[in-house]
């Protein structure tokens, strides 16, 4: 059933990380991404890996769920690794030899630096994804929306519709299960009338989707209109004069998180100074 597909990958728990302010978590992830790109050497990853492992341990999310996120970008990692492996073009390129045969064929050549770069790039990409997925695993989509809204607040001064954007996001999230259910219903209705979604080549199958998409779109528009009326009659009139029930509060956890991030940054800078080479 489509309905059972959980949206996002939130892992419900009440851990240290779950209870952090979503704004701080978003900022920490941004910092984390910057750190990943600041690092110049393998040893520089050490503080980041320690930080990451510590966070995962604190979040009480099963390690398996964290690493599952890498699956989605596996192809990208392999692609980047292969490119780096075969196409290192630096002046210091030294083609490797196995039993006297140079590993070189046409424009492909395996160099020592190539291998190192491939490993470095892969590690970088994997850490990038692992880190960001901790955010989505420990923060509900609603909280993420609230966090983004709050972080974007300064943009209000340049007339950017922050509140509207956040409302659109949260309504979209709210309607995902409803529309999933509806899709299920339409698929079944079309199947019961003999529609075939499973056979034929890809073009045929895409064409077979049309009788699902059109009713879905039509109903989405109808729903939007009804929701608009319901919102109107509940006195919605934009961001002006509106109060907010939910307030985000920062606590000691967020302070600790920021402190840890500062520590990691210091370590990375020091390592970059004292170990400027990649290996």
């Amino acid at each position: 059933m489509l309905k059972d597909v959980t949206f996002g990958q939130y892992y419900p728990a009440k851990s240290f990380v779950h209870r952090m302010d979503p704004r701080v978590k978003i900022l920490l992830v941004i910092a984390y991404i910057v750190f990943v790109f600041l690092i110049k050497s393998f040893i520089g990853f050490l503080p980041l890996i320690v930080f990451f492992s510590f966070t995962v341990a604190l979040s009480r999310v099963p390690v398996g769920s964290v690493f599952r996120s890498v699956k989605g970008i596996l192809f990208l990692v392999i692609f980047a690794a292969v490119l780096n492996l075969f196409f290192y073009g630096g002046n210091d390129a030294k083609v490797l030899e196995i039993a006297g045969y140079p590993l070189k064929w046409w424009i492909f050549s395996v160099t020592e630096q190539g291998i190192i770069n491939a490993a470095f790039m892969s590690l970088r990409l994997v850490l990038l994804v692992l880190g960001t997925c901790v955010l989505t695993l420990t923060t509900t989509p609603m909280d993420l929306t609230e966090g983004i809204e709050s972080l974007l607040k300064p943009l209000k001064y340049i007339k950017f519709p922050v509140h509207e954007l956040a409302l659109i996001m949260s309504i979209a999230l709210r309607f995902i299960p409803t529309l999933m259910e509806e899709t299920d219903r339409i698929v079944n209705a079309q199947k019961s009338r003999g529609a075939d979604f499973e056979s034929g080549n890809i073009f045929r199958r895409i064409k077979a989707m049309v009788p699902i998409l059109i009713p879905l779109l039509v109903s989405a528009f109808r729903r939007a209109e009804e929701l608009g009326d319901a919102m109107d009659s509940r006195c919605y009139s934009g961001a002006k004069g509106r109060t907010k029930y939910k307030v985000l509060r920062m606590g000691y956890r967020d302070l600790l998180g920021a402190f840890a991030a500062a520590l990691v940054l210091t370590a990375i800078i020091l390592i970059n100074i004292y170990f400027p080479h990649i290996v």
Partner: peptide
């Protein structure tokens, strides 16, 4: 087609928020 939020509490807050009720 009448609820705006994914949590009941947030949805019920929508109306009062709109008219500017204190937290």
């Amino acid at each position: 087609n009448q609820t705006v939020a994914s949590i009941v509490e947030d949805d019920l807050a929508f109306g009062p928020e709109n008219v500017g009720v204190e937290r």
